[in-house]
Amino acid sequence: MTTVAVKPATMAQALGRALRDAMADDPTVHVMGEDVGTLGGVFRVTDGLAKEFGEDRCTDTPLAEAGILGTAVGMAMYGLRPVVEMQFDAFAYPSFEQLISHVSRMRNRTRGAMPLPLTIRVPYGGGIGGVEHHSDSSEAYYMATPGLHVVTPATVADAYGLLRAAIASDDPVVFLEPKRLYWSKDSWNPDEPPAVEPVGRAVVRRSGRSATLITYGPSLPVCLEAAEAAQAEGWDLEVVDLRSLVPFDDETVSASVRHTGRAVVVHESGSFGGPGGEIAARVTERCFHYLEAPVLRVAGFDIPYPPPMLERHHLPGVDRILDAVARLQWEAEN
């Protein structure tokens, strides 16, 4: 039996490897953005790509997000497969007109004649001590735009597998990278990269019987920790990692909630108009007769993202999740 060198890799490295492999497999894949070339990106995700593939394939663009996405649209019109990096969540906003008016609807406008196979990578979320404009959870804006896929990995393996799938997709994908998980590690066999994951499938990360925590991206580790802590209180929590907000995997989510009878949605994004409202509505519509309690949400407050010294009060933590679980009307059971 041969032994394989299994060593730890970070999520940032897994994302970089996914880009590298995609570029090696498909000469139409082009990476572009601010500082992605010589520097390798501010999070070093694109490290080494310009060196390996040349600056025409991994391009430092002028500093203009609408221009980056707008020119990527033109490149995709010509048959390339651009992968655009937005430097931070809040700095993607200048590109929203291109995203909403063109990227999301070009397939539709042209009756399928000219789909845009574009991937837009966006580092998002808080918990890294960033000063203002560096920690937004912008997923609800993207979710509200028909025609986009919205995908977010929570594990090192998914970072690779989902990014490969996003790049291979013939539809535009907004690929949200949880910043605070960039340095999370997992064992990794460099000779055998993880599987390419289909976009649109949620996965049960922890099986349990008492209630389901529905979450994604940066909140997955928090939910898993909460589930461990809940064990001591006598709750056996199931944790579903959505991985894809659009398309939404109603099947996996509903199956879990029908099985447990209770659900809490957990995310950093604010609750008002946030993803949790949509998810709670979908669960309620599909699982009403199985529910023992209303679907609850544990979310960021409905405030502009706070300064770093106060952010821990804002982000959903283990205690807030356990408090919500405690409010799931267990009395009725006794």
């Binding site: 609408a66 649209v73 019109m77 010509y78």
Partner: peptide, 12 residues
């Protein structure tokens, strides 16, 4: 908004 598309296409 069509102008950056033209640039990207010409560049590609």
């Amino acid at each position: 908004t069509q102008l950056p598309h033209a640039v990207g296409l010409a560049h590609a």
